[in-house]
Amino acid sequence: MADLLTHVLVAYTVAIVLSWKFKWINSAHVTAVMVGSTLPDLTRIGLLIDPASVENIGIPFSYSPLHTMGGAMVSVLIISTLVRVKHAKITFILLTLGLLSHLALDSLIISASGHSYAIFWPISVYNPPTPGLYLSTDMWPALLAGSSALCVWLIDSRVHSRSQNI
């Protein structure tokens, strides 16, 4: 997984650019896309509750589904259900957009085997090949994403004269 900052910056950039086309996208909607882009990294819950300790009591266990299309969609459904009905559908779409940007970025990470992970699980357990563009610990993806985010923020705040809370 790339660092969380890169994911959030890319989600911000995508959401702002989309808001130029779809005028109803406001600051809170941009935040929803950003939240969606963090959801696959909920696998970090493993730092609190170790999956190995669950397996020790005889139950096979892995948090990896959170980082796949299927599991991440369930987490999107949970959050969308918590949202007021009038915002629920649009929140669902925006969160999904954010998580797709996360999974797309992570599918480009360099791996030793040359293959990514089971992104499309549970539809498929196939690990697709990765072009291997960057390492999860590289600094340049966040710099590139940060520069893009800064550009769209400048354009958005000047050309559209709309107050977008950073």
Binding site: P51, E55, P65, G70, G71, V74, T81, V125, N127
Partner: peptide, 23 residues
């Protein structure tokens, strides 16, 4: 949804590697 998610955790944990699928 939470039950489905926990079910997925158990399901995925029970998967065995499969080199034919690059796993």
């Amino acid at each position: 949804f939470l039950c489905i998610l926990v079910g997925m955790f158990i399901w995925y944990g029970s998967l065995s590697p499969n080199p034919n699928l690059n796993h």
